[in-house]
């Protein structure tokens, strides 16, 4: 079972990998976007960690709802409302339970991803974070490692795609050949699950 500490470790691991990969995210975003994805995500997850520290939410759902709210209010780009909706919707789906199963987490993330698709209007194949998140959620039933590889493969598979949503869609065919920054940061978020799980057994 996964408790609030697991979800805190997930956010901490994601914040660390976003820090580590910020330059790469911004470089990907400068090819087809407005070159702020790395710094925006860093600002957002730094604020998430500060809020988690300050408010110490007691349940998995509360951790994700709080993280989602902070992302909406601090990221400053489209990633804010999109990641914010993902985590907030997932958190609401988990309700007030103090512990949740991996299956419940997978279902909650599915609800979150549906929320992101409804908000942004993107579908699989549009060269967005959805291309990493949907395969990741599909693979979650086989464990966190499988979800991580599915997310990473999904992100890499955006390279030949034509962007149909957001700023990159203005580029038309020139968006082909670049990996989508949002799908790349989504893969970091999903990879954080595996790190959070290994943190529990190792400590």
């Amino acid at each position: 079972m996964l408790d609030a500490d697991f979800f805190r470790r997930w956010m901490t691991a994601t914040a660390a990998s976003v820090d580590r990969e910020a330059e790469r995210l911004t470089a990907l975003d400068s090819a087809i976007g407005d070159a702020d994805h790395g710094s925006n995500m860093q600002r957002g997850f730094t604020a998430v960690l500060a809020s988690l520290e300050e408010e110490a939410p007691a349940t998995p759902g509360a951790v994700l709802v709080l993280a989602g709210r902070r992302l909406i209010s601090t990221v400053g780009g489209a990633a804010g409302p999109l990641y914010g909706t993902l985590l907030r919707k997932a958190g609401k789906a988990l309700g007030d339970a103090t512990e949740v199963s991996e299956k419940q987490l997978a279902e909650a993330l599915r609800a979150g991803v549906d929320g992101v698709m409804a908000l942004g209007g993107a579908a699989p194949g549009d060269k967005t974070m959805i291309d990493s998140l949907v395969p990741a959620v599909d693979a979650l039933g086989e464990g966190f490692a499988a979800a991580r590889s599915a997310a990473e493969q999904g992100a890499e598979a955006t390279i030949p795609l034509l962007a149909r949503k957001g700023r990159a869609s203005y580029l038309g065919e020139r968006s082909i050949g670049h990996q989508d920054p949002g799908a790349t940061s989504s893969a970091l978020l999903i990879a954080g699950l595996e790190e959070a799980a290994s943190g529990a057994s190792g400590e």
Binding site: I72, G76, G77, A78, A79, P81, L82, G84, L119, R167
Partner: peptide, 14 residues
């Protein structure tokens, strides 16, 4: 456009 639209929608959903 873009994040301006999405942020307002997300705030309304809050």
């Amino acid at each position: 456009l873009g994040s301006a639209v999405l942020t307002v929608k997300a705030l309304l959903a809050e």
